[in-house]
Design a protein around this nucleic acid. Sequence first.
DNA 1: GTCGTAAGACTTACGATGTAAGGGAGCGAT
DNA 2: ATCGCTCCCTTACATCGTAAGTCTTACGAC
Lengths: 242, 242
Amino acid sequence: MGPKAAETRTSAPRTPLTRERVLRAASDLADRDGLDALTMRALADELGVEAMSIYYHLPNKNAILDGVVELTFAEIAAEAAAQGPARADAAGWSAAVRARILGARRVLLRHPWAPVVIDQRKSFSPAMVRHVDGIVGVMRDSGMSHDLIHHSLHAIGNRVYGYVQELSDDGQAPPPGQLEQMQSFAPHLAAMLAEVAHVDPESTLGWCDDQTEFEFGLDLLLEGIERRRLAEAAERSGPADR
Amino acid sequence: MGPKAAETRTSAPRTPLTRERVLRAASDLADRDGLDALTMRALADELGVEAMSIYYHLPNKNAILDGVVELTFAEIAAEAAAQGPARADAAGWSAAVRARILGARRVLLRHPWAPVVIDQRKSFSPAMVRHVDGIVGVMRDSGMSHDLIHHSLHAIGNRVYGYVQELSDDGQAPPPGQLEQMQSFAPHLAAMLAEVAHVDPESTLGWCDDQTEFEFGLDLLLEGIERRRLAEAAERSGPADR
DNA sequence: GTCGTAAGACTTACGATGTAAGGGAGCGAT
DNA sequence: ATCGCTCCCTTACATCGTAAGTCTTACGAC
């Protein structure tokens, strides 16, 4: 049959399993058949392999879930890179952040399972941290305080990726070395966390006052809606005035 | 042993199982041990019964999940009732909505699993519909258009209960009779839906343009953050001026 | 060649979980 | 007594993640 196999085996030589191949197949499978269909056996089938073989390359299913989220954020980073550096002046921070968020959303629409997984695993992969760091950088360039940026991140993050569950997040403190390590590849975020943590000594990185964050985001929405309402009323009463 | 049982049975006479008793036990169990611990067998244990006995009162586990969400919204309704009718004039709509949202959140903090379940089951129980209807009513009293209310609901709803997954919601059309039925116990919501659906004929109730809703909510946040930024800048440069 | 060795896949098996199917126990009405 | 209804129990199965151990293959050393 065509090229005679070097082996006496009749089947194709089968490209070897790797962590990357497994994760890509997992992502594809979830895209195609939904998150529920992503089982170890189905994934193994997809790879032409037995379920337990996967465990040689990844320790367990949670590692796979973390891995596919990581892949997704890599895609988001690629999307962001594709539309240029997008650093902005003070007035333009909003458009820059908007572009990044909508870019992320475009990717997430291709992987609708991703927010679900992010939510239930609270994963904080390096790729995700870098993404957030970029947003912090843009905001910082606009002159915002770290405190304001911090609240804003909660408000926006809640909207884009899944994490609804600030509900009693019980934010566990991270291993103490982590902040220093973060400094290298997420400097803006690290700086923000250092300052915010400084103000509120308990809860070093993990996390903030949920109720405060919740009300902050809620009030942003309510204020915005109120302005829309006033605009409607003005429109109704006097479009005469222009 | 104490009061001799009327039966020859040695154990207590055991209050009979009912749908309500099952759901309450399920809610309590999830509160105490987490959503993962809510299994049919654990729930049965909790009730002093075998797992399969539950199926006489509820058809399957999904019905239980829907049921506990319903219970939760009943609690939210009670919370809302406890703080008075809270109808407001045009200017006060915001405070009234705020109070309702925060009331709902207080309940959801007692049941951290609830948003997760709401999210993954997209349940629309009558109690939930009534809750939303109340908010629509308050907003309507302030003179807002149905269209604005509709967008606002998306923005706020996304924040309070889980539903992150407007991501490709693929909003399925509801059974056609549903809107008329809703008219009786959720008049404001029904009116809004009738008008919104009228403007956009496809997708009768189910649902709206995700991208539009997403951007609406995002822009509310971005605008609000921008105003906070300007306030900070003003504060920094000239607190002299007052 | 032929071995030893280790990487990498496979086999088997176990304990959860949701639930289909059917088996009664109890009891009021006839 | 016996039927029939309500309500609970027993048994069993498919599917899931994964622990434990085995077999296969490739390859370097002799």
